[in-house]
Design a protein around this nucleic acid. Structure first.
Ligand SMILES: [Zn+2]
Ligand SMILES: [Zn+2]
Ligand SMILES: [Zn+2]
Ligand SMILES: [Zn+2]
Lengths: 366, 366
DNA sequence: CCGGGTCATAGGTCAC
DNA sequence: GTGACCTATGACCCG
């Protein structure tokens, strides 16, 4: 807000109100020894604390006109001193020790900086997610590589021109969705720190769950109550539906129950992106190396922190509750993806003629 | 302006002038029981009158340097107390309104009141847990009621005098541990709000997992690396160990892997008590009614809030990370208790002559 | 002497 | 960077 009520000229009008000795605007008291306005107070403070120094681009006479004075930091600072302002320049070691302790567990970043960091993180995650989504929509492939091969040579899966008459089957959609998630998570820097063995186990453990999670979110965003695949059909192959036709309840529950919870919680896309990587960084994955566990645990911590911050910002009332509600979604996801695995496994045993691609077998744990 | 005539260093110069016991600046007399300067006097007064509470952003050692001490309110207050300051916390009617507003989740309570509430909650949970523990140690029973019967008539399981020569078997310990957890959770008020059907499903789902969790914590507290039963023997019946003698790895992992994680995290008993009930209030339990889910979800929220507060108080660096690490323990618990169920199930099929009590069959989901 | 209280102002935040 | 505004601090006063 501009101070319309603060004339910038020198005329010493309205004797009552005190005026800044430096710039003649209204003052509310002494600061650092001189009667001064908030602005001059803060200006002086910043100069001393940050040990700044300026040089006048005129002839050190800017103090003659108040307007010019405010433009020339050298003359302004000079006038502050002339009018008796003084402040202890805080000692070097103090500044340093403060900065040094920063990197440790960096708690000393100001709230604003933290928010800035968070929004950058969210923006990046959002961009990655959008790319994944775009790829899923535009990509089509007939490749049939195992999870291991894909992880070792991420480029092997080639985009193939799709016959426009060809209706993408549920099994193909599953493949594309799984694959798009593998590339998505593969983009995170820390993945490179992992050994191949760990990487394989981690992706084997996570890919189906988080692809399923993505499907649930898609359903929420499309305001449907039942999950369909990106093409808008049932996620299950027809033959599988047929096998369970006498008891479709289980198939339906997988597509509906967790969606309800997402709707209840009104999960935002930012929350989804953070949870996605938090869930990915599951340090409880069996049989991975201690190094891998540490890396996952550390990153789970980092993203949890961000999620909590986000909850605090958007969910003033009760951030911890919100946080637990969100984290607990993992329960719904694991429950139902396990169920799905079982149903597919039984189908696979009953219909061995039905050919699933390797990636599906690997991630569904056949 | 800083008091230039008041040196801030510790050197006890100029013997004549009295110095503040807290910050070493000049003091003019005693205040609230300690020789102190005006500043420390007023600081202490404000904290007590306004019931403020602070937490150190360092490691509760700021009192080592006088400059840091003045910046850290937590350490400053601590030092005031250490040097003998005391002041009656005035008791107006405000204190009473606190208890009335207890059940809501409202946020308007002051930091100090919140901490008070939290410590009451923790004390209560701790007492309940201690009782459960005492019961487990002293109780013995030959009853064989189903989970449903126990839930309907909690009194049916009678304490029986045990033949002092009788060595309690692993199977009996399992029964006693499971039973003690059922009575433990049955003591929570909100359980009464649940219908019988829901209650049964909830206990069926939770009892083994949380009894297992308790066993893991017992192992942590006894500083062992491998879970044994409360009697100090293997948790598995001998016959079961025999069945898996060629591959004892799975049996061992259940007893060890999650213990490692508990040790890593140095889980406190307060955290355990809160997690215990948070995990119990799992709204993702399949097939329970919407009312039950709501009740569980609400209570999970309440206790999550408390856990987060606790993490904030004890884990300055990074409460959200701590919180996620703790909540994520549920992953370890479910993973391993499922594995345990499977191992018992297979054993049950292989050795139908081995009679498990009804409660064990119900909670292990035979 | 010491408890209770006041108020100018230092230090910091954040929208601009 | 700037400056309006907020909260914690502590010198001082009164009974
Ligand atoms: Zn000014
Ligand atoms: Zn100038
Ligand atoms: Zn002092
Ligand atoms: Zn401190």
């Amino acid at each position: 807000m501009t101070l319309s009520f603060v004339p910038l000229d020198w005329s010493p009008i309205s004797e009552k109100t005190k005026r800044c000795e430096i710039c003649n605007r209204v003052a509310f008291g002494k600061h650092y020894g001189a009667l001064s306005c908030y602005a001059c107070k803060m200006f002086y403070r910043r100069v001393v604390v940050k040990k700044l120094s300026y040089k006048c681009r005129g002839f050190n006479e800017c103090s003659r006109s108040p307007k010019r004075l405010l433009k020339c930091q050298a003359c302004r600072y000079q006038k502050c001193q002339d009018k008796g302002m003084y402040m202890e320049p805080l000692e070097d070691d103090e500044v340093k020790s403060e900065e040094a302790s920063d990197d440790g567990i960096l708690e000393l970043t100001s709230p604003n900086q933290k928010i800035e960091k968070l929004s950058i993180l969210l923006k990046n995650l959002n961009i990655m997610d959008k790319k994944r989504h775009a790829k899923l929509k535009s990509f089509y492939s007939l490749n049939d590589e195992s999870l291991e091969t894909i992880l070792m040579h991420p480029g092997v899966v080639r985009n193939t021109k799709k016959d426009p008459d060809h209706q993408v089957t549920p099994e193909e959609w599953a493949f594309l969705a799984l694959y798009s998630h593998i590339t998505y998570f593969h983009n995170f820097e820390f993945i490179r720190e992992l050994g191949m063995d760990d990487k394989k186990k981690i992706f084997q453990y996570n890919t189906l769950k988080l692809t399923y999670f993505c499907g649930l979110m898609r359903t929420l965003n499309e305001k449907r109550m039942r999950m369909l695949n990106p093409g808008g059909q049932e996620i299950y192959p027809d033959d599988l539906i047929d096998l369970y036709r006498t008891n479709p309840h289980n198939l339906a529950r997988i597509c509906c129950q967790p969606v309800n919870r997402l709707i209840e919680l009104k999960v935002t896309n930012e929350e989804y992106c953070l949870m996605n990587i938090i869930f990915f960084c599951n340090p409880a994955i069996p049989d991975i190396s201690d190094e891998a566990r540490l890396i996952l645990s550390r990153h789970q911590g980092i993203y949890s922190n961000a999620l909590f911050q986000y909850c605090e910002l958007t969910n003033q009332q009760n951030a911890p509750t919100r946080m637990t509600d969100l984290i607990w979604l993992y329960e719904y996801i694991t429950k139902n993806s396990q169920e799905m695995e079982t149903l597919f496994m039984i189908f696979h045993c009953n219909a061995p003629h039905f050919k699933f691609r390797k990636l599906i077998r690997d991630t569904f744990h056949f």
